[in-house]
Amino acid sequence: MRCWERPLIEIIRLSVNGDSHEIGVPSHYTLLETLRYVLGLTGSKQGCDKGDCGACTVLLDGLPTLSCILPVQEAIGRQVTTIEGLADPDGPHALQDALDLTGGAQCGFCTPGILMSAAALLNVNSSPTRQEIREALSGNLCRCTGYTKIYEAVELAARALREQRPPAEVLRS
């Protein structure tokens, strides 16, 4: 089949944030295009759209992955977690609160990707060092906040989760 012919539509089943979706997608869609334009989950951002910036980061079976360069078929049979699935019904994730409290998000475009990378780190390492945080976030570019406040937010959230207290309370203490 050539470019100027009609794209194929594939029926696939995707598991996103715990929900199973049966959807028809053009077979040349990336996971990001599927999330944004088929499922309406626009939290994951389309930044560079070619692997350089990390704005499209989602978790694939718990591992941070760039959805903008992932053919959608590679997500079949795996658990996709996006920023929409980070909070629980009771309220925001500690990382979201912490980012707000430290002023770690300005325009917010990098924020969904940063949060997914940070969440994956905290899932496997409950008290990361500053260096480990820098390494985990080294594929997520932020052009306005700068990184210091973002690192501080991850440290605050890690402590809040360890102490099972809200980040605001940890900050006051």
Binding site: C3, D49, K50, G51, I69, P71, E74
Partner: peptide, 23 residues
């Protein structure tokens, strides 16, 4: 195509445009 981290950006740049990809 394996991870696609080289091929997908290259296809987005129209450096390659195969009608079939074998994962």
């Amino acid at each position: 195509i394996a991870g696609g981290t080289d091929l997908v950006p290259n296809m987005k740049h129209r450096l390659f445009a195969p009608g079939h990809l074998v994962a």
